[in-house]
Design a protein around this nucleic acid. Sequence first.
DNA 1: AAACTACATTATAATTATTCTAAACTGTTG
DNA 2: CAACAGTTTAGAATAATTATAATGTAGTTT
Lengths: 142, 142
Amino acid sequence: MAKNYNFIEKLRELGLRPTKQRIKMCEVLFNREKTFHFTINDLAKMLTEKMGEKISLATVYNTVHAFEKKGYLKEISINSDKSYFDTNTSIHHHFYDEDTHELIDCNENDVNPVIVKKNITGKKINSVEVLIKVASDYQNQK
Amino acid sequence: MAKNYNFIEKLRELGLRPTKQRIKMCEVLFNREKTFHFTINDLAKMLTEKMGEKISLATVYNTVHAFEKKGYLKEISINSDKSYFDTNTSIHHHFYDEDTHELIDCNENDVNPVIVKKNITGKKINSVEVLIKVASDYQNQK
DNA sequence: AAACTACATTATAATTATTCTAAACTGTTG
DNA sequence: CAACAGTTTAGAATAATTATAATGTAGTTT
Ligand SMILES: [Mn+2]
Ligand SMILES: [Mn+2]
Ligand SMILES: [Zn+2]
Ligand SMILES: [Zn+2]
């Protein structure tokens, strides 16, 4: 979903009724320059605090999953405590900052193409994604 | 922890008391040819069913985390529903079968070395791991 | 525009994985 | 063996997520 979009039309195209809650969630999620990563709780807080909308947590879950199913959100598994979601739905790599628990997208040329030489009989490769865990470098700290 | 080991000695070396429960868990986890992946529930079932030991779930959690802290188990985040653990504690890549939800280790030469060209200021890279998601190839099915 | 209907939202309960608690138990040391 | 610290355990608590079922609403039909 592109930014500055007519989300009402877009939702209808997806077969989702353009409710007040969904439109607001589209604005928060997709009406921005850069893609980003969030948890359900992050999003619920943004909706209540920044947008002044009190959307039921159940609706936040429902809508996030609806958007995911339609291909406009992607779930990322970094740690098993909670789910992260990504508005960047392309296959891409991540840096994960173990200090701040922050997730950062890799750009196209941050990592050389990954060459998989083995294939599993009867199976096709759906995605190849790299997770780069980083943390403070105390060695290099003055 | 190597297979066919004197786990009592090994546990003592780690500063862990060699209790009946821990020794049994060592046998299940480390006394085998190949490394493997499991969930806490898998392990609890193996202990009760196969080994005839009823170990409290709290102890299974405690002990898995103790072994993880000592570096003999590694947590793997594939999906956010539950934690997977790996007796292969080296940095390595995985195939994940989206049909069977099975996790398969990559060998050294299944994937060419991953070259990360970007670095984040003040941060050092702790690990670079690849996750290859595979599923049935209906295209190639007769 | 009122009625109708299928889809959505919501508060709340249920579920599930995991962690906490506090009492009972056990390995180790003297 | 006595003493103590570490360990196990059942059960309670927590936290993320999902299910339920009543109420609300968008889109369609009359
Ligand atoms: Mn953990
Ligand atoms: Mn999920
Ligand atoms: Zn991303
Ligand atoms: Zn592995």
